[in-house]
């Protein structure tokens, strides 16, 4: 565990927990894409199948359970909570996410380390995570502005990806270990998707103005 990895995990954790707590406290999920949240729930469930087969560390196990639990709780809130579900921007959240699921699954069937159930699902979760933010970015784009919650959420997720890349570089230099290319290429794609958003986030922060994305 190095400082970049820890910072990455913490910003990831903050992004998910802040989202869940704010949805619950304000009873509103306006500006948040249910499709992205469902994709993340699928990502965590399919990636952490090794909870049943391998023990890495207590930290690892607890974090996995927190990620699975909190992502399912967010989906539950947005879908079924009597009050919260009314604020869901259903008509703006129309990204055809089955395309992302299909492409990721086919890619995982073709590109994986070993042809076992666990390895194929692991690769699938890596590919899916890389593109899972797209429905959220499209929703932000369509609504034309971002409230604090959605903006902070995407900001922390982007920070998490940036720290993970630093973590890989650090591990390469200090542990003489290279990150598996499946994670590496997917991670770079994922981080690139945030770059555009970060640009506008930075501009709005600099001007102390509400975040406005171009139509």
């Amino acid at each position: 565990m190095n400082i970049f990895r820890l910072a990455g995990d913490m910003t990831h954790l903050i992004s998910v927990l802040v989202l869940l707590l704010k949805i619950y406290a304000t009873k509103s999920c306006s500006g948040i894409s249910l499709k992205t949240q469902e994709l993340y729930a699928i990502v965590f469930v399919t990636r952490y199948l090794d909870l049943f087969t391998d023990f890495i560390s207590l930290y690892n196990t607890v974090m996995k359970l927190v990620f699975i639990g909190s992502s399912l709780a967010i989906v539950w809130c947005m879908r079924y909570h009597r009050v919260v579900r009314r604020s869901y921007d259903r008509e703006l959240d129309t990204f055809r996410y089955w395309i992302l699921l299909g492409v990721s699954f086919i890619l995982a069937l073709v590109l994986h380390e070993k042809f076992t159930l666990q390895e194929v699902f692991w690769a699938f979760s890596i590919y899916l995570e890389a593109v899972a933010i797209l429905p959220q970015l499209v929703l932000l784009q369509r609504s034309g502005n971002v409230d604090n919650l959605a903006g902070q959420y995407v900001f922390f997720l982007g920070a998490y990806r940036a720290f993970y890349i630093l973590n890989w570089i650090y591990r390469y230099l200090t542990e003489q270990r290279f990150t598996r290319w499946i994670s590496c290429v997917s991670g770079l794609v994922q981080t690139a998707l945030y770059a555009d958003f970060f640009y506008y986030y930075f501009i709005s922060w600099k001007n102390n103005a509400k975040l406005q994305l171009p139509a």
Partner: peptide, 10 residues
């Protein structure tokens, strides 16, 4: 270098 055990990352 050896491959990093990617499964130890989240």
């Amino acid at each position: 270098p050896k491959p990093a055990p990617s499964k130890d990352e989240l």
